[in-house]
Amino acid sequence: MNPADNVEQTIEKLHISTKAETDKRVLDDAFAAMEKSTITQSSEASRYVRQKNFRDRIIKLAAVAAIVIAMFALFFGISASKTKAPGGIDAALGKAENISITKFRSDSTEPYEQQWFSTALNIKMSMKKNNEQVHVELWDISKRTRTQTFLSSNMVSTRPLTDQMLAELEESMIQNAGLVSFFDIENAAEPDAPARPVEAGKWQRINAPQILSQNPGMKIYEFLWQLKDTTTGEVVLRKWRIFADAETNLPAKAELYSKSQADEEYRLESYMLFSYPQQDEIQTVVRATFGPEGGRPEYISTPQY
């Protein structure tokens, strides 16, 4: 048979096999990665328990606290004034001094973004993959500076934050956090928005034994809402599923799903893992990225006012 007669069938028949040495290399490295990951997870779990003892140390740094609370209010309820997250989640988050969020796409086990929010240090930091580059940005509210670098580069750029930039910080942090898609929520208020909510969102607690048994110690909530594409008229159904620690009410994981009206089941689009690091752990990440504080170059680039 000439492949031109049935290209699809011929492609279907393509087959090659791995070599024995490849199998050994892959499996050896995969087992090692699995073991390393198990050790890391167990160490993070014990750090989390230690960290709970410090939780009543609440330092009120209004600017960042307001940002974090507003961000999570958007995350959990679309409108901060109208909808409150259930189960004391929003209150627990408001009290958390340090939050780290790691984001993944559903088809990848590698994170595409990690963010740290610290009311204790008065900073926000984000590390985001952009093609093959990793872009890191540090907003220091106390020093009123914004420092950026790429991990592949030695160049560090620090710029002062003006009052206007500080005022805009809240909004940009909400957008960057990506907890609720900017496309869905922010644009929805515009008359020519590409997508608008067609019904108010609602919370529901998940009590399905199968889901609960897979997530011991968690309480699980879902937030459902719908959007309508203003051009095509297509309605998209979206859903957040939140896994919160039953004891502390702090979220541990959030999953974003969507489906069309014709679809039977929601599809997982992305998910994020929450952790609540110690202050010194965040400082270590900042130092590892930008170097020690005294050694950081100041205002390498042109200040923007």
């Binding site: 791995t18 490849t22 892959v26 490295d29 990665a33 559903s106």
Partner: peptide, 23 residues
């Protein structure tokens, strides 16, 4: 292609403890 298979599988193994598939 072998390297791709290696990288994908090692990454899969590293996240295995938390894996939740919706596909």
């Amino acid at each position: 292609a072998e390297d791709v298979l290696h990288d994908v599988f090692v990454s899969f193994a590293a996240g295995a403890g938390n894996i939740e598939l919706r596909v």
